[in-house]
Amino acid sequence: MPLFDVYPLYDVTPVSGKGIHVYDDQGTEYLDLYGGHAVISIGHAHPNYVKAVTTQVETLGFYSNAIQNPLQKELANKLEALSGCKDYQLFLVNSGAEANENALKLASFKTGKKRVVAFKKGFHGRTSAAVAATDNQNIVAPINAQQEVTILELNDVEGVKRELEKGDVCAVIVEFIQGIGGLDQGTAEFFEQVDALCKANNAMFVADEIQCGYARSGKFFAFQHYNVTPDIISLAKGMGNGFPIGGILIHPDIEAKYGMLGTTFGGNHLACAAGLAVLNTIESENLLANVNEMGAYFMEKAKEIPQIKEIKGRGLMLGLEFDFEVGDLRKELIYNYKIFTGGAANKKLLRILPPLNIEKAHLDQFFELLKVALKEVEIKA
């Protein structure tokens, strides 16, 4: 049976990983500066992670949410302690798309309204409401398009004000650092005014932290760089270091009711074990400090390369923008210099999303090889 052919694939077959490296079926080592879309937060096969998941699967891998699962409470308490999101409530799911779908559903329940405001170049997932709020018509099917969504320019405060004052908006959803859109960010004034406008107009302010959260930006959540209080925070990617897990943090003003939300696999025992291993490692290895130190070092090194026109992002959610499309450069890096990097909707942007425990030696290696790869691309052009 053939696979449904929806992914253009590089001709590389990783079969194992260790730390910041992956190894293909020929035994070739690759420097992983992409982490599978920022999923690998504490490195491949981290011993804490391997031990936690192995122990849990040997004990109890799964049971439904119809029973007590103390691991969920342990995960919630650890997340509250490390994130500083005091008194928020946690609902666990399996992915970022599910997190955003439930965030928007909850906003609609809470407000009794159904229209969503989102922003250009934003990406929120591929489920029904989440994909409708995503600025990419190529992945919005007709069945999704029946959702009521208004997409505005980032930083358009007046547009947000105009739409909210119409009285039918249940949620404004925003990435505080856009991921696939190209690492664009709103201004502090924009985020803070949107927060205030939501509170004044009975709309939920949803912080999509699926890619920019979990220490990736240099704070636990990217919204914490600003003076805002989201009503709902969605999280996933780096949460499980590769194990499927996502969730939403829900402000204490939003009351839970039995049956309001539900999931079969969300918050299962294995997922919680993986999630706890990530949080415990972020804490024990002081990875937030490392993110800030390595992010600053990356910025310094990038400024030495004249072909780089702009450095975008924060912490270890970074982008290098050139004055040419980077598709050939990415191929050069992966095939000839054995480095994984990422692309974006902005075809001139090279995305860098390494594990949070990356070291200076890895960045030195990347920049030295990037200089050589740039020369090769220039010659071939």
Rank of each mutant, 00 (worst) to 15 (best):
F109V: 12
Y49F: 15
L333V: 13
P354L: 13
F322T: 04
M239H: 12
E293M: 02
K121T: 07
G167Y: 05
K331S: 15
I151E: 12
I232N: 03
T54Y: 04
V169P: 01
N100V: 10
L90I: 08
P355W: 02
A361V: 14
Y63L: 08
N292S: 12
Q307L: 15
G327A: 09
I311V: 15
E158K: 15
K18E: 15
E359G: 00
H225P: 01
I20L: 14
E285D: 10
E255C: 03
E285Q: 11
A200M: 11
H124I: 08
K121C: 00
P8H: 05
A145Y: 03
I143E: 12
L249R: 07
R330Q: 11
V131E: 09
K360I: 02
E29S: 11
K257I: 11
Q307C: 05
V116W: 01
G295Q: 06
V160I: 10
N292D: 11
V15E: 08
E378R: 12
H225A: 03
H44P: 00
F322L: 10
A171L: 13
D231M: 01
L60D: 06
I245E: 01
G295D: 05
K120H: 14
V172Y: 02
C212M: 03
S64G: 14
K331N: 15
V149G: 02
E285T: 00
D328K: 07
A373Q: 02
D168P: 02
C85I: 03
K375G: 10
L356E: 09
I254D: 01
H225Q: 09
L152V: 07
Q224Y: 09
K166I: 04
R126Q: 11
Y10W: 13
L270C: 08
K331V: 10
F265Q: 11
E98S: 15
G342N: 13
V172S: 07
E58R: 14
E378T: 13
K105R: 11
L320W: 07
F205Q: 06
Q185N: 05
V93Y: 07
L318F: 00
Q56E: 13
G266S: 07
F190S: 05
T54A: 03
N336S: 11
F298K: 04
Y88K: 06
K237H: 15
L279F: 14
F366N: 10
L9H: 06
A373M: 08
Y214L: 14
V15F: 01
E189H: 08
L249V: 05
E368C: 11
A222F: 04
Q224R: 09
V172G: 05
G36P: 00
E283M: 00
F221H: 13
E98L: 13
Q72K: 12
N144A: 14
V93Q: 02
L152P: 07
S284I: 03
V12A: 01
H46N: 15
Y258M: 11
M299W: 07
K114N: 14
L90T: 07
V160R: 05
L75D: 12
F4E: 09
T264V: 09
N268F: 06
L197E: 10
N144H: 15
T281F: 00
A107E: 03
G182R: 03
Y63V: 04
N94K: 01
S284V: 01
R314T: 06
